[in-house]
Design a protein around this nucleic acid. Structure first.
Lengths: 229, 229
DNA sequence: TGAGCGCATTGATTTACGTCAAATTTGCCA
DNA sequence: TGGCAAATTTGACGTAAATCAATGCGCTCA
């Protein structure tokens, strides 16, 4: 489906697009699409040629790899207002699988078209380079966590990341995706995830009700995450 | 030390710089330096502001992180003709430590200056974006290996990576850095590295003499790396 | 409404890898 | 050339996390 004026206004709020002129944005939008996805619907598969990149409007997209023996590793989760596959533009093919894990709406932009825009607009190049630099930094942190932190530390870090800014004590958070998915994101098995949660609970750091988690002792969680596992 | 004509010719061979005009390259070089480093000398530390990025001429540079309890994780190794810290230009500060692990020579380029060049040269932006996209792809593969592959698989993959193109059977490779460093690069302990090597040796896949390794059975190594365990 | 499926939890057991410690080798440099 | 420090290897042991297995829970959808 083509983009409406209303959609274009939403897109403009994204850092990558915000400095484009009305005409430029219209040009990008003219080759863009609104894509409605049902839960479980594939957006693209690994090694497919990439012709589009995406901005999530609503829902949740899982970016993952599958090993030869069928094990899945979730590399990233993209929620509303987040871009994905924008760095693959230069690679020719997608390094990951992408699937909507709940009913979702994404904006799809044409790579060729966007690259043409970048040719006319150095500022746009700088925005994308910033974006890619941040992603690279995030990946380094990811590898740091996977190799230097224990499963418990990574889970504590994840919980703390879900806390909105400025909250001082005992925030209540919600897990936006199944625990199965978070476990894979953190590089642990679902059983291990469950056991770590049970331990945090019995240590009095958290209280849980399904996907709702009360972080009773932020200080202890922060110590667990930062100091030693 | 400032760059000579001869240095500029070497630099031009790098993908990032090759399409620059003589004048542009001269401009980049005018704020560049040749830096001689002794083994163990730090180039920059994590969180330092980044004003320069680098191209290795000779030697080997280790890019790494240190955890709170002092453990080290080698994120990458940069040898001759390889760039490093070029993606940090947009981040403001270095996400990693960099140290020369043997006597080395690196070219250092001014970030501000290079960014000014990019403002005048969209093609240069595209080259850097390509570079960053490749790095991102490499990072995804790295996380894939760390989470989905065993230590043995990662070591086998590493050995196979050292084989030059086109070699059909039983190539002889050399480890260019201490085993300690490779182990950290692969996310395993030196003791584990040693034990895996011993096993590959007793399984008849390799023969070793210090840092020289004969890969006697490429097929078996490839199976080990790709298939399972 | 209730049958069935995927997700989550818990327990028992295994295992790959880490840790600690000691012996051995290597390579540097005075 | 000899001596020392760092790297490597090997052995014994510990442990975090995976695996296997069983049960329970909460959906969705007929």
């Amino acid at each position: 489906m083509a983009l409406t004026e209303q959609h274009v206004e939403q897109i403009r709020k994204s850092y990558l697009f915000e400095q484009l002129s009305g005409a430029e944005l219209k040009q990008v939008a003219s080759h863009g699409q609104v894509v409605e996805l049902h839960a479980g619907q594939t957006i693209f598969s690994q090694n497919e040629p990439c012709r589009q990149f995406y901005l999530v409007q609503r829902g949740m997209v899982k970016l993952y790899r599958i090993s030869v023996d069928g094990a899945e590793k979730v590399m990233d989760l993209a929620g509303p207002e987040q871009l994905f596959a924008e760095a693959a533009m230069f690679a020719g093919k997608h390094p990951l699988h992408a699937v909507a894990i709940e009913p979702s709406t994404v904006f799809a932009f044409d790579c060729k078209d966007f690259m043409a825009q970048m040719h006319n607009n150095v500022e746009l190049c700088f925005r994308l380079m910033s974006n890619m630099s941040q992603r690279l930094h995030g990946m380094i942190n990811e590898i740091d966590r996977l190799t230097l932190h224990s499963g418990t530390q990574r889970l504590a870090e994840y919980l703390l990341e879900q806390v909105p800014e400025g909250v001082m004590q005992s925030p209540c958070i919600r897990l936006l995706v199944p625990k199965l998915v978070i476990a894979s994101r953190l590089g642990i098995q679902p059983e291990t995830f469950s056991r770590i949660m049970a331990r945090l609970r019995s240590d009095g750091m958290i209280e849980t009700h399904n996907d709702t988690i009360l972080l009773k002792d932020l200080g202890a969680l922060r110590c667990l995450a930062a100091c030693h596992g």
